[in-house]
């Protein structure tokens, strides 16, 4: 066992290579995962703080258009829900 860790006298070079590889790869993984989580939290906070402007305007238009012109609000509806979500 100790012979395995000694690596023929080159332990310092070999184990620091493997250690550094583990360190770099794990650090990049953790930083990437944390970054994604932080951005998702920020987006969720923004969306709850300011509900979509598009949706607000749409409901306002529907409110206005309701008595007179149903065709107009119908024309707007498909364009409203876009690919953003």
């Amino acid at each position: 066992m100790s012979e395995f860790f000694a690596m023929g006298g080159h332990a310092a070079y070999i184990w620091s290579s493997y250690g550094l590889a583990a360190l770099v790869l794990l650090a990049l993984l953790l930083v990437s995962l944390r970054g994604l989580r932080r951005q998702q939290a920020l987006l969720a906070a923004l969306e709850t703080a300011h509900p979509s402007r598009r949706r607000r305007r749409q409901t306002a238009e529907e409110g206005l258009a309701a008595p007179g012109a149903p065709a107009r609000s119908g024309a707007h509806a498909p364009a409203g829900e876009g690919g953003l979500s």
């Binding site: 993984l29 990437s32 995962l33 970054g35 994604l36 951005q39 920020l42 987006l43 923004l46």
Partner: peptide, 13 residues
């Protein structure tokens, strides 16, 4: 893939 998702969320923000 994780990093691209993160970039896309950042663009949406």
């Amino acid at each position: 893939i994780v990093r691209i998702r993160s970039e896309l969320v950042a663009r949406k923000i």
